[in-house]
Design a protein around this nucleic acid. Structure first.
Length: 298
DNA sequence: ACTACCTGCCGTCAACATTC
DNA sequence: GAATGTTGACGGCAGGTAGT
């Protein structure tokens, strides 16, 4: 078993199987990539099939079903693969394979960094702020660069861990500032290893952000669907009330019409009765009765 | 038990954007 | 202009599940 795997296992951070797999995969990939670089450079960005552009893995692999996230045992606690503690622990082993890792003299802060990340992950609602802010970044949230925070955090934690393991094999400090001045002193391979490590961390962070973004969108969809259902019910209720009011108005009108008809009928009956009672009465009286009848008819 | 298939996650590359 | 950050794409593995 490779030394880094043994070390990782001894640390109890990640299972040896996981690490062996990771390292084997990485070595395979490195071999593959080296082979690839030997090939004539075709250059040009890799492009996805036209129907998959912009979709990433989600579309590429989206066909069916779902799988629970894989939990891993880290420091005696079961953690999600996206958990910052797991990422940090994972990076310990990954970084230990980088021969040129430069340590920061803060090995005693490793456990604190882990617990800080854990508490932060639990307390901060924004998924972006997973790693502790550096002192220079704590002054303003707007200027926050999460990925840099994570890199710094991981660099500190993982480098310290390696230092503890290697017992003084690694001497040079990995100062977090002045990037170009330090890396210019490194060999191509060292720079490459550093770049790979940073990109590894960045990819994790990127995926985490994307997941958070998608989850946020899904939550919005759910919320809007519920809101839509509620509003539709409201519309139905109001529309029902409206139709009831219209029906009431219609019935009232009908009542009024019936009342009018009733009054008409009653009036005609009275006039007829009066005419019958005075068939030869005085002319004036008859005239007025007839005019009443006429007005009723009109 | 074996196999095929699928998803989630990972590390890496490449291209582009941003920072210094 | 180099170093660094970001992210889509790719290939690979682990682990779950259904069919045999």
């Amino acid at each position: 078993m490779p030394q880094e795997v043994q070390l990782a296992s001894q640390q109890g951070q990640i299972s040896a199987d996981d690490k062996l797999t990771a390292i084997t995969n990485r070595n395979k990939t490195v071999e593959k990539k080296q082979t690839r670089t030997d090939e004539p450079q075709k250059s040009l960005k890799r492009t996805a099939p036209s129907d998959m552009v912009g979709q990433g893995d989600a579309k590429r692999k989206a066909t069916q079903g779902s799988k629970k996230p894989v939990d891993k045992l880290v420091d005696g606690a079961t953690l999600r693969g996206s958990d910052p503690n797991f990422i940090a622990a994972n990076a310990v082993t990954l970084l230990s394979t980088v021969a040129t890792v430069q340590a920061v003299d803060n090995s005693h802060h490793f456990a604190e960094n882990l617990s800080a990340a854990a508490s932060l992950a639990n307390s901060v609602s924004s998924p972006i702020a997973v790693a502790p802010l550096s002192s220079s970044q704590q002054t303003g949230i707007s200027g926050m660069t999460p990925n840099a925070n994570m890199v710094e955090f991981l660099n500190n934690a993982t480098a310290a861990q390696v230092q503890a393991q290697a017992q003084g094999q690694i001497q040079e400090a990995n100062s977090t500032g002045k990037r170009s001045s330090t890396s210019r002193n490194l060999s191509n391979d060292e720079r490459r290893q550093r770049r790979l490590l940073r990109n590894r961390v960045a990819a994790k962070e990127c995926r985490r952000k994307k997941k958070a973004y998608v989850a946020d969108l899904e939550e919005k969809v759910t919320r809007l669907e519920e809101e839509n259902i509620r509003l539709q019910k409201e519309v139905e209720e109001l529309s029902s009330k409206t139709s009831q009011i219209e029906e009431y108005a219609r019935l009232q009108k009908e009542v009024e019409e019936l009342k009018t008809k009733l009054a008409l009928c009653t009036g005609q009956a009275d006039v007829k009765k009066e005419l019958k009672a005075n068939p030869k009465g005085d002319t004036n009286k008859n005239d007025s009765t007839e005019s009443k009848l006429l007005s009723l008819k009109s």
